[in-house]
Nucleic acid binder design. Structure first.
Length: 423
RNA sequence: GGAGAGGUGGCCGAGUCGGCUUAAGGCAACGGUUUGCUAAACCGUCGUAGGGCGAAAACUCUACCGGGGGUUCGAAUCCCCCCCUCUCCGCCA
């Protein structure tokens, strides 16, 4: 959420940000409502001030045992007018609050302007696509032949796009999770947490999924709880409505959670295998940082995610997202895209996004500076570190061998009972 | 699911037969005095949000005691609904 005062003073800037993000937030209405609201507040505050004075006089007269019926009538009158005015104020305020939640974050100046992903800018690439002396297979073929994936039986349980990992496939997923969490906790200084996988509406508003993405999430109606679409939601909300002492910043958390996404409207796109699924596991990194050095922390966050791919020896590239591809809450985002040689595509395995104070304002997460400074909002950011299904795709396709089995890089073997090959 | 207790400013914590509390006091923090230095002591400042007037500071007004309604001239305090935490019981991994 943007600060209302900021919007008031930077109307054109905010409108431009909306256009660049292909967002239709009604800024003019917000400005109008803000105007109405302030006019009413002036009147109402004045009225209430009068009422308070009268009440004080009444109190005094009661003590002196004087007659108060006239004053009481006048006070009653004021109180009723204030009540009516307050109803108006509330209706404007409610509409304003709802509209404010629909205004997207403003892209950082470095973000390339463009309608869609075609305007994304490649920052760098690492490694090189593997070369094969045979025709490489895709993960679907490998998964089936090696008994590592059984998508048919997954569909039997919950429908298509709910994948089932089997045998070495299941073990590989678990190994990768353990490997990644170990790197992040021991080498990058993240604290591990395992949060609830359901979240309430306040959390969803806090991180920006609501109101815009309501239709993309699973809702449990009996409890009015959502299945989390990413670990970002529960972990960022760890500090919702809290004040963090400045000396505790930055706070860095790593978690592994399942992620649930309806992918409504996404059918027909990336429909094969593990490319796009309703449920997947993801190791997620979340940081709460001081506003002064948040962009430096963002670069480090990107580095922390990249290290995983480097240690696994997987070729990838880093994309700086254009305004039109940037998420609603994001100010700047790098995507990590890993190369999958079987399907010959770069697959997004991490979005490394900084939100500045956008989420912190929504979720009311502040820090208290040392000394006498005022409370201020922290900056939040997160990155996948990494998302499992596409990582597994790239892993299986990159390390397939001529004999069909999947070769295991030495660094991962201790997480796989020492196995040199899978399948 | 049943019974009970509780939810007050960054933290702790008073305050319920409604009105000199438009939230006491303490801690922490900040400024100062004293001191060879540190500590202690003492003095002062110090909640959040919004509005008005300002370039800004200052000043001033209003709201806020888990959330939402209600009674009243006036509600932290009385009434109703909801949420959360803790304890005990029941049920169950």
């Amino acid at each position: 959420m943007l600060d209302l005062k900021f919007i008031r003073n930077n109307v054109e800037l905010v409108k431009k940000a909306c256009r660049n993000k292909n967002d239709k937030a009604d800024i003019d209405r917000i400005i109008a409502l803000d105007q109405y609201r302030r006019e009413i507040i002036q009147e109402l505050d004045h009225l209430r001030g009068q009422g308070n004075k009268l009440s004080a006089m009444i109190s005094e007269m009661i003590r002196k045992e004087e007659d108060i019926s006239d004053l009481k009538a006048e006070a009653k009158n004021i109180s009723e007018r204030a009540k009516v005015l307050n109803e108006d104020l509330k209706s404007y305020q409610t509409e304003l609050d709802q509209l404010l939640l629909t205004v997207p974050n403003i892209p950082h100046p470095e973000v390339p302007v463009g309608r869609d992903e075609s305007a994304n800018r490649e920052i760098r690439s690492w490694g090189a696509p593997p070369e094969f002396d045979f025709e490489p297979r895709d993960h679907l073929w490998l998964g089936e032949v090696l008994g590592m994936l059984d998508l048919g039986r997954g569909a039997k349980i919950a429908g298509s796009f709910f994948p089932l990992y089997t045998n070495d496939g299941a073990q590989l997923k678990r190994a990768l999770v353990n490997f990644m969490i170990e790197i992040h906790t021991t080498e990058h200084g993240y604290r591990e947490v395992s949060p609830p996988f359901l979240s309430n509406r306040d959390c969803m508003v806090g991180t920006g999924q609501l109101p815009k993405l309501a239709n993309d999430m699973y809702l449990i109606p009996t409890e009015d709880l959502f299945l989390i679409p990413t670990g970002e939601v529960p972990v960022t909300n760890l500090y919702r409505e809290e004040v963090i002492p400045e000396e505790q910043l930055p706070l860095k958390f790593v978690t592994c959670t399942p992620c649930f996404r309806r992918e409504a409207g996404a059918y027909g796109k990336d429909t094969r295998g593990l490319m796009r699924v309703h449920q997947f596991d993801k190791v997620e990194l979340v940081k709460f940082v001081h506003p002064e050095n948040s962009y430096q922390e963002h670069e480090e966050l990107l580095h922390d995610a990249e290290v995983i791919l480097q240690k696994l020896g997987l070729h990838y590239r880093v994309q700086l997202l254009a305004t039109g591809d940037l998420s609603f809450a994001g100010a700047k985002c790098y995507d990590l895209e890993v190369w999958a040689p079987g399907i010959r595509k770069y697959l997004e395995v991490s979005s490394c996004t900084i939100f500045e104070d956008f989420q912190a304002r929504r979720a009311n997460i502040k820090f208290k500076p040392r000394g006498s400074g005022k409370l201020d909002y922290v900056h939040t950011m997160n990155a996948s570190g990494l998302a499992l299904p596409r990582l597994i795709i790239a892993f299986m396709e990159t390390y397939q061998s001529a004999v069909g089995k999947i070769w295991v890089p030495p660094i991962l073997r201790s997480f796989l009972n020492g196995k040199e090959f899978l399948g």
